[in-house]
Design a protein around this nucleic acid. Structure first.
Length: 322
DNA sequence: ATCGCCGCAGTCCAGTGAGG
DNA sequence: CCTCACTGGACTGCGGCGAT
């Protein structure tokens, strides 16, 4: 869960609490640790008579193993393998580490089409803005080290289009994703034998790279539920129809995460002058149409990453016994 | 020997303010 | 608006020191 908003030093300190049952690390600045782990669940406490030392209560071990252990080991192993510092002075957030893991996994593709640091930052560190990376020297160094480059080029290559794939040996379905968020947790998809392709902003040409054998598997599209995302889906569906294939649209499993259309970093707006914002009605199911109309009426959109891909895929679309 | 505590050095980054 | 340079603060890791 990335809403824990933990940084590397928090994760290390929790690991130390797990191993040593105590730590002197300053981690109460994190709201989750302070309010939930110490306040509500009382899994961690201050050593009596000492405000500087935290100790693990009984119950912490089991809680840690369930919620942190696997992730921590994954992160630590990764950092070591990449010869990156595991020092707690590194200020990586948990999202940063997951993104570094993504970068390492897609290294070849990224190095072949190396972009400016601005483009790289806004495309790969999604949601953090184009200057995120250049303002964080430590993180930038880590990215350069992983990619084996000294620095980023001054100019973007022409026709920049990255092709990212989370492949698996024998996929039972292929999901095309508009954003890379789902590709940053590839092990979940692999476990379920779901192959993920990053389609990116407007790149419906990606379809030409997918083999006909895979196109004949069940195909799904995962996107932001805004005008831009849905119209790309429409174009992809049309393009596939001409090749005699079909694709389905993944519906969000909750409406709670809907955001106002004018939220920061979001550009796509509904066209109120046209019926269904000008989208092709025949490309959408009855449920999808209901949801789209609701979003248009309330001038909202739903972010792709707020949809739990695996839940949606297993419950809504793929029968469990397949 | 081991523990707790302190101070120092190194790292990173947010904030600030000058000057395009 | 943006960019650059600088600073101060927060934090960790480590070595030393004294108490037990």
């Amino acid at each position: 869960m990335s809403n824990r908003k933990l940084t590397w030093r928090h994760l290390k300190a929790l690991h130390q609490l797990y191993i040593d049952k105590r730590t002197e690390a300053k981690i109460t600045d994190n709201a989750y640790i302070k309010n939930v782990l110490i306040g509500q669940k009382k899994l961690i406490k201050y050593k009596s008579g000492n405000v500087k030392i935290l100790e693990a209560n009984t119950g912490f071990t089991a809680f840690y193993e369930q919620h942190f252990g696997t992730d921590y080991l994954r992160y630590e192993t990764f950092l070591r393998e990449q010869n990156l510092e595991t020092d707690a002075r590194r200020r990586y957030t948990e999202d940063d580490i997951q993104t570094l893991m993504f970068i390492a996994g897609q290294k070849e593709e990224l190095v072949q089409n190396l972009s400016t640091i601005r483009t790289f930052s806004s495309e790969i560190f999604k949601g953090q803005g184009s200057k995120y990376l250049e303002n964080k020297q430590g993180l930038k160094d880590a990215v350069c080290k992983i990619l084996g480059i000294a620095d980023f080029p001054e100019k973007d290559p022409k026709n920049l289009q990255w092709r990212f794939v989370v492949d698996c040996l024998n996929p039972r379905a292929v999901v095309l994703c508009e954003n890379i968020a789902h590709l940053k947790n590839p092990w979940k998809a692999r476990e379920q034998n779901i192959e993920l392709w990053y389609v990116g902003g407007n790149n419906i040409g990606i379809i030409d790279y997918i083999s006909p054998e895979k196109l004949s598997k069940p195909l799904y599209y995962s996107c932001d539920w805004d005008y831009h995302g849905l119209s790309i889906y429409s174009r992809i569906k049309e393009k596939l129809r001409l090749k005699s294939f079909d694709i389905g649209l993944l519906l969000p499993d909750t409406y709670e995460t809907a955001l106002p259309v004018n939220s920061p970093y979001h550009k796509s707006e509904w066209n109120f002058n046209e019926e269904l914002s000008g989208l092709n009605r025949t490309h959408f199911s009855k449920e999808a149409l209901q949801l789209i109309n609701k979003l248009i009426n309330e001038n909202k959109w739903i972010e792709e990453e707020s949809l739990d891909l695996i839940t949606v895929m297993t419950i809504q679309y793929i029968p469990k016994n397949v």
